[in-house]
């Protein structure tokens, strides 16, 4: 303990060493923030300034023009695009349907598997479980064909329903249901509550935190879908905003409506980033729990 007076935490050298973590973390934060900053700045300038490659590092005066144009009309100097308000609506409907759909069908099937004993119970459980191993990316063509045969191309149902089976959510709810004390279920049964009553009056309120946590990660999952919406939507009216951006960019030539593209990108990022930042506690719980 006596050496604290000579090389203790108050010496100058020690203080410099204490700064190192901050410097590294700040560099890390900047690496993640810089592209966003550039995009924000770009969305306030005109297409020509960006196209010349001379984008300043300070905001320009075109923010209102760019955002209002991208929002409602979205025809730039070079081409016209699906308006952002339409694409945002499509993305919102898709993300909400996927999140709510996954939670609803998963909580029901977890309830069946955890609280009932019936023939083929484990068969169903494993059937749901293997969907975990078959993400849409590895079976695109046959899944596309099923959706096409069902006439679900270019519809919200086609965007959302094929993605709403969820092994992860089912496993998470089942895990949680197994921790509910037997006494609680017994008491409810003695009070004359049937299985549906028990589900709605006791189980659902108890699952609130889990539902919120799952909702955050599933909303982001839904919002960020790419390959599936690219396949099942053809009409411009059904475009989601993430697809819309890459369609606007095309081959990435300098002569693009970069101002509108950047404004659209900002609006595409806002909803999921807001959900993560404002629901951070639930988000981390959902993410870590669902991978257990």
């Amino acid at each position: 303990m006596s050496n604290e007076h000579t090389a203790g935490p108050h010496s100058v050298g020690r203080r410099l060493i204490d700064l190192v973590p901050h410097i590294v973390l700040i560099v890390g934060v900047l690496i993640f923030a810089f592209p966003i900053y550039v995009t924000l700045i770009g969305s306030t300038w005109d297409a020509a300034t960006i196209g010349r490659g001379s984008l300043p590092m300070t905001p320009g005066g075109e923010a209102w023009t760019n955002y209002s144009q991208a929002w409602s009309e979205s025809h730039g100097e070079r081409a016209s695009y699906t308006p952002v308000r339409l694409m945002l609506m499509n993305s919102l409907i898709m993300a909400l349907s996927i999140a709510v759909g996954k939670i609803a069908i998963s909580i029901l099937s977890a309830y069946a598997v955890a609280f009932f004993r019936f023939p083929l119970r484990m068969v169903f459980f494993w059937m749901i479980f293997i969907t975990l191993m078959l993400p849409v990316e590895v079976r695109i063509i046959p899944t596309y064909k099923v959706v096409a045969d069902l006439g679900m191309i270019d519809s919200y149902a086609g965007l959302a329903i094929p993605l709403i089976a969820s092994a992860t959510a089912t496993l998470l709810f089942r895990q949680f249901f197994l921790t509910i004390p037997d006494e609680l279920v017994e008491a409810a049964k003695i009070d004359g509550a049937g299985p549906l009553r028990f589900f709605f009056d006791i189980l659902l309120p108890l699952s609130k935190t889990n539902i919120a946590a799952l909702f955050v990660i599933l909303f982001i999952y839904g919002w960020n879908q790419y390959l599936w919406p690219l396949l099942v939507t053809n009409s411009a009216d059904m475009e989601t905003i993430v697809i819309g951006i890459t369609k606007m960019i095309g081959t990435g030539e300098a002569a693009n409506d970069w101002n509108l593209i950047m404004a659209t990108t900002v609006m595409a990022m806002l909803p999921p980033v807001a959900v993560v930042v404002f629901m951070q506690r639930w988000f981390i719980k959902g993410l870590v729990d669902s991978e257990k």
Binding site: V29, V38, Y226, I245, G252, P272, V277, F283
Partner: peptide, 21 residues
């Protein structure tokens, strides 16, 4: 907080941000 938010970005959007730079 400043390090976890990129989770919210779609892979395609992250790619577009890199393209801008």
């Amino acid at each position: 907080t400043l390090l976890i938010w990129p989770y919210a970005l779609a892979p395609a959007v992250a790619a577009v941000l890199w393209m801008f730079i």
